[in-house]
């Protein structure tokens, strides 16, 4: 298992979004970056994935074993990014198809993962025949089959209705436990339910305004009193960033 240290300065359209920002993805833990829309959190995630051009970003995302990160990252986005012309099973296996290494074991593994995200028997269907929640389940299976040491989740459930989102948070938490994971979200409840550690981003250039490690083991249930406490604290931080700073 590896941890990842990130150090980045990033400007976009003359505006400085991150100025020597540092973040560590601790090994085997789920770190959550919480911030309002437009706080630059998605860009940071894209930077770690190696998708941001060096014209706008300087800095490094370094793995603890000093090997390059590329090829060891899995990415799940807000859009399911399913390819509408491929069956569900091929969408799950798209990584191996794209690398030209399709095999029988992969097909078997894909079926197995589809069953684990509760999509038994959907493997021969096409994405347009599925609901939004089912599609995001497929996307989750596609992320998991890659079996990468580092997982990056970019608001993966924000397009779903609240009950589906709740189920998928449970599922993702269980399946990503003990993997180095960075979750980016604007939903404080999602952060509280899923994360081992929560960093609240604010300001421009963005800084970590607060770090919260909610007690208990994710996925935390709503009945858990720690959840409502942490939720209130985070909400307060998001709504009144200035006053919370003053308290410090």
């Amino acid at each position: 298992m590896i941890s990842v240290s990130v150090r980045v300065s990033l400007s976009y359209a003359e505006e400085c979004i991150f100025d020597d920002f540092r973040l560590t993805l601790e090994s085997g833990r789920l770190i959550c970056l919480l911030g309002k829309s437009g706080s630059g959190k998605s860009t940071l995630l894209r930077f770690i994935a190696g998708l941001v051009s060096s014209n706008i970003a300087t800095g490094k995302a370094v793995a603890s074993d000093n090997n390059p990160l590329s090829g060891r990252v899995a990415w799940m986005a807000q859009q399911d990014l399913l390819l509408p012309w491929l069956k569900v099973i091929d969408n799950v296996m798209i990584g191996s198809l794209l690398r030209g290494e399709k095999s029988k074991e992969q097909v078997e593994l894909a079926r197995c993962l589809l069953a684990r995200v509760e999509l038994n028997g959907a493997d021969q269907r096409y994405p347009h025949e599925l609901s939004g929640g089912m599609r995001q389940r497929v996307a989750l299976a596609r992320t998991l089959i890659e079996d990468r040491p580092v997982n990056l989740l970019d608001e993966p459930f924000s397009g779903l209705d609240s009950s589906t989102r709740y189920q998928l948070q449970d599922l993702a938490c269980t399946m990503l436990s003990n993997r180095t994971t960075l979750l980016v979200t604007h939903d404080p409840l999602e952060a509280v339910r899923m994360a081992d550690s929560i960093y609240v981003l604010s300001g421009r250039p963005a800084t970590v305004a607060q770090r919260i490690d909610p007690p208990g083991v994710p996925p935390r249930q709503l009945s858990d009193v720690n959840v409502s406490n942490a939720y209130a604290e985070l909400m307060n931080q998001l709504v009144h960033p200035e006053s919370a700073d003053n308290v410090d």
Binding site: R46, A49, G50, L51, S70, G71, V73, A74, W75, A77, Q79, L81, L83, W85, L86, I94, G95, L97, L98, R99, G100, E146
Partner: peptide
């Protein structure tokens, strides 16, 4: 976003054309 996903997965130019670009252009 599809191209980004393919890049992270380590796709080659050829397979991106075959599985993504070409069908998307149909």
């Amino acid at each position: 976003s599809w191209i980004d996903m393919a890049r992270i997965m380590g796709a080659s130019k050829h397979t991106v054309l075959k599985f993504i670009r070409l069908p998307a252009a149909l």
